[in-house]
């Protein structure tokens, strides 16, 4: 998890140890396993360590939209292609698909708060490509793994 300030510069970075599900867990969680691992385990653990509460969380995987159940922070899925809107009831949240610059986004927000969230994302997109911070996370993870080895 990379927390950026308003200029796109890093403020905090959190990464977890890898998780390896057992066969039993794979069978029993079925298709919900990724969502469980990504959201309830990893993302929750990462968010617990942050000193600053992010205003918006950008994610690049559909499964991570389930994280809304663990946090009040608005979630925005960033993708180059339109994602199928998950067939799911967002408890107390609304999901809003949009095209911003060259990206397709789905925002999962509390009703009434979508405007500032989408405006902030649109502003951010004029300064940095929305998927660019994920490149940084990936290279940081590669570096961390290389050190661990």
């Amino acid at each position: 998890m990379l927390i950026l300030n308003q200029w796109g510069r890093p403020v905090e970075f959190h990464c977890s140890a890898p998780l390896n599900p057992t066969r039993t867990q794979e069978v029993l969680f079925g298709t919900t396993l990724k969502s469980f691992l990504f959201c309830e385990q990893i993302a929750t653990a990462l968010l617990e360590q942050t000193k600053q509460t992010p205003e918006v969380i950008l994610v690049d995987r559909l499964e991570l939209l389930d994280f809304h159940a663990q946090t009040e922070v608005p979630l925005v899925l960033v993708s180059r292609e339109q994602q199928p809107l998950p067939n799911r009831i967002w408890n107390g949240r609304v999901s809003i698909p949009r095209s911003i610059e060259d990206w397709e986004v789905i925002a999962v927000v509390a009703p009434g708060s979508e405007l500032p969230v989408l405006a902030a994302i649109a502003d951010f997109a004029t300064q940095l490509p929305l998927d660019e911070p994920f490149e940084r996370i990936r290279s940081a993870m590669e570096e961390a793994h290389a050190v661990a080895r």
Partner: peptide, 25 residues
């Protein structure tokens, strides 16, 4: 820095409505 929140005139659709329209840019 990221601009302050947008004016209502540049608003997205009313809350709760899923839309594919262009967001405020």
């Amino acid at each position: 820095p990221l601009a302050p929140r947008r004016a209502e005139s540049q608003a997205a659709p009313p809350s709760g409505e899923a839309s594919t329209g262009q967001a405020a840019v």
